[in-house]
Design a protein around this nucleic acid. Sequence first.
DNA 1: CGGTCAATTGACCACAGTCAAGCTTGGTGG
DNA 2: CCACCAAGCTTGACTGTGGTCAATTGACCG
Lengths: 252, 252
Amino acid sequence: MIKELPSLVIPGATIEILKASCASCSMHQLCLPMGLDNNDMERLDQIIGRRRKVARGATLFRIGDAFQNLYAIRLGHFKTYQVNREGAEQITGFQMAGELLGMDAISADQHHCTAVALEDSEVCEIPFATLQQLLAEMPTLLRHFHRMMSQEITREQSVMLLLGNMQATQRFAAFLINLSSRYEARGYSPNTFQLRMSREEIGNYLGLTIESISRLLSKFKKEGLVRVSNREIELLDTRMLKAITAGTETCG
Amino acid sequence: MIKELPSLVIPGATIEILKASCASCSMHQLCLPMGLDNNDMERLDQIIGRRRKVARGATLFRIGDAFQNLYAIRLGHFKTYQVNREGAEQITGFQMAGELLGMDAISADQHHCTAVALEDSEVCEIPFATLQQLLAEMPTLLRHFHRMMSQEITREQSVMLLLGNMQATQRFAAFLINLSSRYEARGYSPNTFQLRMSREEIGNYLGLTIESISRLLSKFKKEGLVRVSNREIELLDTRMLKAITAGTETCG
DNA sequence: CGGTCAATTGACCACAGTCAAGCTTGGTGG
DNA sequence: CCACCAAGCTTGACTGTGGTCAATTGACCG
């Protein structure tokens, strides 16, 4: 299933067909093909439209775009955001390799958020109409697809808890712990990683200002919880950060 | 498909098998069977475990319960909430007739939130394992089920926008307008309705305190936007409320 | 009736927002 | 190599929105 086609360009994003398959992708135990046998994975591979590159800052889809495809992130990071009528953005999530983009578009056949690459990234385009046919024939795939949608619901509920109930310090600790565990699940260091998003984007996501994020970073640094250098961050006291997240920390 | 069986009781909730079917249910154009032909609707009807009553204040499922069923609300209102490690609740939604409960439980085979009836209510129990078999055979049902899950994702994203970006006044106006439009979609008056939840529950949902909700109600009353008497509310100036929601209102 | 619970209102306060100045960092060009 | 600039980040001083605490009113019910 190796595909070789000339690359093409659309406004703001470079598209290129890559030699790739689910079986050879390091994310296949997290992504849509999770748990499929070789035969089923091959079938899924065949319906994947193309693998394309999305340059840093380029838009994968925007609010109002007609819904055609889901996108599985092969490599890189994205943010998704909503825009209210005033034009204010609210970032609804940061997505990394192995995660699915576009599931909110199924309900009304058009995208309800905009997805932008935070760094040079690669996605697999999954034509939803074709996927749906396949779902009817492959119970394992159907099951896992439902799990992924459900996981998105659960994730958003956690953010609601964060935004509705937590203090600034708690929100930020929760954010760091969340990133940490997701990197760990991908085989990366849970303690040292790059923040792919700006302070402004973090603040927007957490319902805080950029100044608050900056102050919180300084505070955590002073308390010996983290080491920070620009976007490089090291978690020095995960235990404490988790305690802050849970609201059970005792000392100040 | 009329079922007639003796009623039984489980702790906290009365269960009773009712004479009912999707075809005879007033919600079937909003609920899971939307768009199904008579034959398919009949098949869906057959897998529905039972129709049961849930008394006001009774719990339908709680966090950590093993996932067996989805629940379609036939009648009444529910709230769902998450609990953090400190024991603080965050209400993640208010659900009404025609809406589906339990979709967040698919991902990990256990419920991630607790669902409690806000008034005496009735639900249809949908065994998920059986539903999934049916989904593979009925493309229309599959399609609509995905729409409903996607709609839940979209709804939660709107709440994230509300909690992350909006001021107290804006949040509360958005809340009222949201209820209004959902009652309208069900054929009820969009202007006059009962608030099924307490001020405290509204505040919790909107990330505000009960005092703030009370003050906002008084403010809206004074400005002639609403008329309130206990839980009975009448929206007198929907146009203005929508403007406040959108953040585009000009006068104070 | 009094008792209970929910809602309202007022006084005060604190957390995080706003505004503003200053500091890094990285890129460009002389 | 350094000057210059822009963008992003940090820090401080001040402010305001909404939280906290407390007292009062109102609704419902045995």
